[in-house]
Nucleic acid binder design. Structure first.
Lengths: 198, 198, 198, 198
DNA sequence: CATGAATGAGGATTCATTCAT
DNA sequence: TATGAATGAATCCTCATTCAT
């Protein structure tokens, strides 16, 4: 049952908590939150279900842990954004950084996107919505033309969906990312035309 | 326990199947597919779980039924689109009609969007993906610039997400729909600039 | 697995709910509430655990059901007592009837006595306490001498404990019941001496 | 996290065993034995569950420890009683001393009373029953009238139940204790009338 | 058309206990 | 003296599904 003296066991010491989160995220992203059972997670880690409970109080807490660890960059981004002037360049920079954050934690964000109904009921649902609204408030100017507001929202959707839906489009991943970002930036830029702002 | 002679019961005769689908969709959209139990559906209809099984072979079949009933328009749209020349005007028309189809069956599409992980594992997952790819093939020109391909994809995301995410933006629903459609059409139009096509 | 054509199975139809309560009470009284698992109850009935849940929403509800069925007489007794004048004869009659009620549902009351800590946390705890206080208010005169108040309380304890603790004293059960009742009545009678009341 | 140099931690050294027992008894009495988990005890003491196992071999042993420490007086009482002549005065003295013992270890006896079903299955169940029978043999004369035997038993019930049930009766605790004792002694005294004994 | 009764599989969670350090 | 990490067995409960009536 699992390596004995070859280091496998050794290295497992102390990092079990992390390993649980890794495996859990993998399975959550693959099959969805509800369809992933703690039994499955435990089996893949070659530990017992009870071991999971040593590290996390509930199934939900496992997800919360992952979420908190991985979304800090977005948190910081929102905080940073709030303090910047709402110029076009700020918005572009927001999109660039946001794209980077999404890419860095792609599995989590894929999970969030594909399990919205579930996430909404969970503790993280609110935190997440708040972040989204934070970004929205920075990107969208409430006094702009409605169509331009939609353009900015659309820039976000593009980033979100682009990450995952474009996987089955062929082409170099790096190039695709760049293309997605370009379209998003373009949308925000167009939204700024006509306003007399910088 | 349900009216007797006042018509409530009467009208219920024969349309139970439909009523099941209505309630099911309502709950699926509200709470997600997995978190909605047959018990819940049955209770809300004031029938027994067994009654559901008289009308549908499995829980999944309930969803399949809803899906088939409500996505025929999209099916037809794809079929129609395939026979049209891939001109810009065709694409615009596709977007217009697609937007209309989404609006007409908003709860279902909201459900599909928020339960992607679940839907993927279900029988309807494939049908749905096929339709999506059908639309994509019409909207996206594989020989176009990558950025322009993304623009077309983005037009679809905008339609999808715009439907639901914009609900908490204030403004007249009709106007919002129009704005969303305009942005989508705009994206497709931009994607056509530069190509020497009509 | 249980008789097939000999009537055992037949008779089981329809009375499963009652059979669950019977077996449950038996086990609750024997081993305590917490130490009795639903698995055990189900096994003894040769049904599945899930069958129990068809008839009762929770483990606690099984007990609630038993309790409600079996304590109605005490309920009625309290109601009756409240409308009587607080004379000595009323009190004697209360004790007589209470003793009868306890005997009629001996296993339940034994259970209640031996699982007070558990019962207190359960939904029935309050109902039960209320009944007890109801009886107390009838039996105990708050203006009487403290010692006489204790005498009346003691009459109740005697009835309660007498039922069960005296099981291992030898002698005819009927005679023992009578003796217990006599002591209880005696206590109440003594408590009345000295008061100028009837 | 627990004082460091202020004496709190200091004083804790060495008396952990006692502190475990104190907290355990508190919780056992409050919630019952089964519903009190070692986790809970450990948490309240700000130690780990494993620490409990350093001091006690099992959960049951914690209770055994408490029991042995606190019931020695009753033990002694029984031993003393056995060597006395079975006179009325002896019985009165037994009741007086027993009442004192119960009061001194009220939480434990409250626990025993409210968790009879549990205690019966535990190792201490037998020891306890033995003590009770010891007292009974001293108080009850097997050749006496059945009613008088019940009177003596009732004296014990009164002491037991009086301790706890009378808590919500108002009045000075000291006076209540005296009243309870008086009733108990009275019962035993009455049981002696008619016998030609001293 | 629909129900009442039941099942089998599986869910998350909790517990007392162990043991190397 | 204690802890950190883990286990195995059990818990209550829920679910989709079945079938005789």
């Amino acid at each position: 049952m699992g390596g004995t003296m070859d280091g496998t066991r050794q290295r497992r010491r102390g990092d079990t908590r992390q390993r649980i989160q890794d495996v859990a995220l993998e399975l959550f992203a693959e099959q969805g939150y509800e369809k992933t059972s703690l039994r499955e997670i435990a089996e893949r880690l070659e530990v017992t279900k009870a071991a999971l409970y040593y590290h996390f109080k509930t199934k939900e807490e496992i997800l919360v842990g992952i979420f908190e660890d991985l979304t800090r960059p977005v948190d910081d981004l929102v905080a940073w954004g709030r303090e910047q002037p709402h110029t076009l360049e700020t918005k572009r920079e927001i999109l660039r950084r946001y794209e980077a954050a999404l890419s860095a934690a792609a599995p989590l964000f894929r999970f969030m996107q594909e399990n919205q109904a579930t996430v909404r009921e969970l503790r993280i649902g609110d935190s997440f919505k708040e972040r989204m609204l934070g970004l929205r408030d920075i990107l969208i100017d409430p006094e702009a033309d409605l169509v331009d507001q939609v353009r900015c929202a659309s820039a976000m959707f593009t980033l979100h969906a682009g990450m995952f839906v474009l996987r089955d489009l062929d082409g170099d991943p790096g190039e695709k990312r760049e293309a997605v970002l370009e379209v998003a930036i373009d949308l925000v830029t167009q939204a700024h035309r006509g306003t007399g702002r910088p």
